[in-house]
């Protein structure tokens, strides 16, 4: 049990997917201007990373590795993730409309999110992970992404009303804030070896 806790702390705080690994910066900066879109995006990322890791795990272990096709991993994963998300979207729209509406536009948007692909690759390529650990890692990475996104959104919502110099408004201050957030997250270094 304790290794799962370490895994979660590691993926959420210490090796945060955005603030320590710098993956998924595009949605991180793109949708962090309003809180309701940020939470929607966060939920969608958690959902898709977990699902995508589960599927890509089998793609790698039972398809690519036996055939010696590991070099096709990137293309295969992108293809699988994109198709999977489209399928899931159709499924949700018909069967769980409430969740579909909550995730909204973000579900199709994150098919090409490098945080999702990155998490899947990190989880699948790590020799120490079994299937369950890979899933927990993916879920925790999604949570870490959502946490960073919500923190940044809170700050940027405040910046929206601040007298920021005109040429620095929007993205420049967003990037600076993200950098300072990453600086603060450095405090967690060394907590998990």
């Amino acid at each position: 049990m304790s290794e799962y806790w370490l895994l979660i702390v590691s993926a959420v705080f210490v090796n945060n997917i955005v603030l320590a690994r710098y993956l998924g910066n595009c949605p991180f900066l793109g949708v962090s201007t309003r809180m309701d879109t940020a939470t929607g995006m966060g939920m969608a990322v958690i959902f898709v990373t977990t699902l995508a890791t589960a599927i890509t795990w089998f793609v790698r272990k039972s398809l690519l590795e036996p055939m010696g096709l590991e070099y096709l991993q990137t293309i295969a994963f992108i293809l699988v993730i994109a198709t999977l998300v489209q399928l899931v979207e159709m499924f949700l729209q018909k069967s769980i409309p409430a969740l579909y509406r909550a995730l909204g536009i973000f579900l199709p948007l994150i098919t090409t999110n490098c945080a999702v692909l990155g998490t899947a690759v990190l989880a699948v390529e790590n020799e120490d992970f079994n299937f369950m650990e890979g899933l927990v890692f993916a879920f925790a990475s999604g949570v870490g992404f959502s946490l960073a996104l919500v923190l940044l959104t809170g700050i940027r919502e405040r910046c929206a009303v601040a007298p920021i110099p005109k040429h620095l408004q929007g993205m420049p201050v967003g990037l600076a804030t993200a950098g300072l957030l990453a600086l603060a997250f450095l405090g967690f270094i060394g907590m998990v070896h």
Binding site: V150, L151, G154, I155, E157, R158, L180, L181, L183, A184, F185, L186, G187, F188, I189, G190, M191
Partner: peptide, 21 residues
Amino acid sequence: WGTYMEGAAFAILLMNSLTPL
């Protein structure tokens, strides 16, 4: 649990980022 001797600087920055929430 961290690497650094004195965590106060990072702790305050982290809580600063939580302030809007």
